[in-house]
Design a protein around this nucleic acid. Structure first.
Lengths: 225, 225
DNA sequence: TTGATAAAATCATCTGATGACTTGATGAGC
DNA sequence: GCTCATCAAGTCATCAGATGATTTTATCAA
């Protein structure tokens, strides 16, 4: 194990330890050197070692047991995946969410229950226009409608990722843009519900894709100008 | 018996802080109380506060700047979403990955560079059959081929998610199934590359979807029997 | 107004000390 | 020989104090 360079010792120490663990230096279940030993190996103070170890514990790589030692819990690190997704461009995130939306609509057309349909029609009617209750409220209703389509897909992995993207995108838009993206009209939304209701997957997917296009184009314009 | 973990102030402090951040108590970009103040608010020592803050920094929620303060970087916790996705069924994960694959192929048909095409044709030729070098090696080549399609989409968010699903699915398959899922033949793969090469997004997406179907059906059979 | 300088605020890191828990060894009692 | 209480060593958990490095803000002269 190599000693660390200056600036952000704790971060560097965590990265160094993480690399050692991922390299398989210690097997799963094996005990790593104690804090004092790590202090010497990494050439940092015990407090810094603890910060690094605590990070790896939170990532699920290590497991500390008071009085016993610190053990390797896993040698594969998947926790960074969504962090890296969050660092991609707003455009990529929007496009990824749209991809999930498109395929979710396809699945929804194949699997929607009567309850799903009832909810979709209800939300479609309730969606209304921006005029009803202001922009923020309209945005909330719009999100609920789309979320409902994804929910009707019945795929929990897609639902989770869709929710993640929605909150991540909302956060970015609030902090950078001023929310002036084109809003697809009501007829476009109705077309999706129609396709899902009649059980036409290709039509459902195409409908979603069709109305995502102008938003993506506008996003491109905003981000490249 | 279930011993309650009462010796974990750092973890509790991190959870407490995380909850505050996710609740929106501080806006993105806002500065949170300094270490001394947090020491009083959380009623723990400064070292413990630092461990908690360090964890939230590693999760992308906070950002510490020496001499300035610690700021909220995001109010969306990516790590939680990932854990939930990992807990969904193998079928849902496979289907979600397939959804990404389908839309990635569509994007690849629109954006592939000459280098992408060269790589795709090369990997398609190199893919060969199971007979060449055994099942494990073939699986590696097959994964590389599909990964290459996704890479040609140029969307970093989709690429990251695809990689995540691939490793998660591999892990599950290795530990539960015995890897006997149907392998689409070479012609199916060639059709995808063809569609991407000629720039036909609908055809590319349809090709991927078409050969995902039998695998999903087999997965359903295995998981419901 | 501008620019340099000093002061204050804040995080980064180190050091030392004490407490709490786990583990293994020891030995008494049966 | 076996069981069980006790003890000691090893290890993580936490606290306290101090110093360094960096950024931000206040001050003041030109």
């Amino acid at each position: 194990m190599q000693p660390i360079n200056r600036t952000n010792l704790a971060e560097s120490a965590a990265e160094s330890l993480r690399a050692e663990i991922l390299s398989g230096r210690w097997a799963v279940g094996e005990r790593i050197p104690n804090e004092t030993a790590l202090t010497e190996l990494l050439a940092v103070s015990r407090g810094t070692v603890r910060e690094a170890v605590r990070v790896l514990i939170s990532k699920g790589l290590l497991d500390a047991r008071q009085g016993s030692g610190t053990y390797v819990r896993s040698t594969v690190d998947a926790s960074g995946a969504l962090d890296r997704v969050k660092r991609t461009s707003l455009r990529d995130q929007w496009e990824a969410r749209a991809a999930l939306d498109v395929e979710a609509a396809r699945l929804a057309a194949l699997r929607r229950t009567p309850e799903d349909l009832e909810r979709l029609f209800k939300l479609l009617r309730a969606r209304g226009t921006v005029a009803d209750g202001g922009r923020e409220a309209f945005s909330q209703r719009d999100i609920a409608f789309h979320r409902s389509i994804v929910e009707a897909s019945g795929n929990r992995a897609i639902i989770e990722l869709y929710d993640f993207f929605t909150s991540a995108i909302l956060e970015t838009i609030h902090s950078t843009l001023n929310g002036d993206l084109p809003e697809p009209d009501d007829r476009a939304h109705a077309a999706i519900v129609e396709a899902i209701a009649t059980g036409n997957p290709d039509e459902a997917a195409a409908s979603v894709r069709a109305f995502m296009a102008p938003v993506l184009a506008e996003l491109d314009r905003l981000l490249t100008q």
